[in-house]
């Protein structure tokens, strides 16, 4: 439940005219402020040794939702989003791992369609989300989202559609976690990340903006996905598609470990080709083995 809370610590003294009487009032206010919890705010150290934190005291990285990246891309310019859209509709796989990866992939595609302001494509992707969610028993969690995606696409409420795709991703993952399907939940995130990275590298590699390479500096995230696959059950870990993705992650890892401004155009192209290849396998069901 959310309750209204005014912004804190802003304009506290702006209403005090500085005459004699209010000088005293200000002094009293200062004293009150000094004794208030805000004034007792801690003074954090300017530098800490992260190595002092034992592993148990460090929470795993949370995978960013696609709109965090698209929010930055919005500020960088206006690339040709229509050219990034993928054609066709993927068939629902029988393999649950591929279904989870495809679901994340389709949600990320939804963001591209939003950027391209292609209402029909957005609605189609919204329906695909529902179909794929049904295949892995989490349909209920996205029924309302799917309908909202359609409604908001009709209204051309692009910010709203983005929020619904973000929500769909989080709801699907939440529902899977409730079903103790943590591994599949991670695969949904991974599928989204792979498609997002493919699009991002296409835009950055196309000369859209050098600043865009900044967005590729995601070392902990790539390591995290690698660790996730490593901790999955043997059957899932040995799934040819999942194993292939792990190989791709290990090739991307050293590149995105570099500071953003040190990533070269050749490296951007390499990440693009790697992610494009693996996304094609997710969509078409070919493992290339």
């Amino acid at each position: 439940m959310l309750h209204s809370e005014p912004p804190l610590g802003e304009g506290i003294f702006s209403r005090f005219p500085m005459n004699h009487l209010t000088c005293i009032s200000s002094a009293v206010a200062c004293l009150l402020l000094i004794s208030s919890p805000i004034a007792r705010a801690d003074t954090p150290p300017k530098k800490i040794a992260l190595s002092d934190f034992p592993a148990a005291a460090v929470e795993e990285v949370v995978v960013p939702v696609p709109s965090e990246i698209f929010a930055v891309l919005d500020k960088l310019g206006n690339p040709n989003w229509k050219a990034q859209l993928r054609d066709g509709k993927a068939r629902t796989p029988e393999d649950r791992a591929r279904t989870a990866l495809l679901l994340g992939n389709v949600i990320a595609e939804g963001f591209v369609a939003v950027e391209a302001e292609d209402a029909e494509r957005v609605k189609e992707l919204g329906r695909q989300v529902l179909t794929l969610a049904e295949a892995i028993n989490v349909r209920k969690s996205v029924i309302a989202r799917s309908k909202s995606i359609t409604d908001k696409a009709d209204q051309r409420d692009w910010r709203g559609v983005r929020a619904e795709f973000d929500g769909a991703l989080q709801d699907v993952r939440g529902a899977m976690q409730e079903l103790n399907d943590q591994d599949l939940s991670q695969l949904v995130s991974l599928g989204g990340w792979l498609r997002g990275t493919e699009v991002l590298t296409s835009i950055v590699g196309g000369g859209f903006s050098k600043d865009g390479t900044e967005l590729l500096h995601q070392p902990e995230l790539v390591n995290y996905f690698d660790r996730c696959i490593g901790s999955m059950g043997g059957r899932l870990r040995k799934n040819p598609l999942v194993a292939g993705i792990r190989d791709v992650l290990r090739k991307i890892g050293p590149i995105v470990n570099e500071a953003g401004d040190k990533i070269t155009p050749e490296q951007v192209k390499s990440i693009h080709e790697l992610t494009h290849g693996v996304n094609r396998q997710i969509v078409e069901g070919t493992t290339g083995n």
Partner: peptide, 14 residues
């Protein structure tokens, strides 16, 4: 006084 570190991937521009 216990501390916990929560790691996050953040993006320049946001």
């Amino acid at each position: 006084r216990d501390k916990k570190a929560v790691s996050s991937q953040l993006f320049k521009g946001n």
